[in-house]
Design a protein around this nucleic acid. Structure first.
Length: 116
DNA sequence: CCCGTGACCGACT
DNA sequence: CAGTCGGCCACGG
């Protein structure tokens, strides 16, 4: 199926057939993050039952094959900063801001209203 | 099966 | 409060 036709969690799992369960879980969890809010690598890891797999989550999202269907830009570091190469980080920050999420000094403001 | 590689995290100087 | 350090984990070679 074509990437632009992926619109549900089931679609994601189908599109990712052949990928590991871990990777599917990461993308599905990220897909659930509502617009205007963010989550952190650590929290996503916890959500999918792998509390200590934050690094693996980051690795997985780095290769997000379903952008922008899967909003990987809504996943940031635990301190609110955007990890990764400068160019990628800037783009992600721009999208987060466009969705109305508060960003101060290059970092997302993490509180009960912005953090899932 | 061992090893290097990260878009990380939390605790501890 | 900024910088370090060790632990963590999936993946690919």
């Amino acid at each position: 199926m074509r990437k632009q036709d992926v619109k549900t969690e089931e679609d994601i799992a189908r599109y990712l057939e052949g990928w590991s369960d871990f990777e599917k879980a990461v993308y599905v969890a990220t897909f659930r993050i509502p617009r205007g809010m963010v989550s952190t690598y650590g929290r996503v890891a916890k959500t999918i039952g792998r509390p200590k797999a934050s690094r693996a989550v980051a690795n997985t999202l780095h290769a997000n094959p379903l952008w922008p269907t899967v909003p990987c830009h809504r996943v940031v570091c635990s301190d609110g900063s955007f990890g990764g190469p400068r160019d990628h980080a800037n783009g992600r920050m721009k999208h987060v801001i466009e969705e109305g999420t508060p960003v101060v000094d290059g970092k997302v403001v993490l509180n009960k209203d912005t953090l899932v």
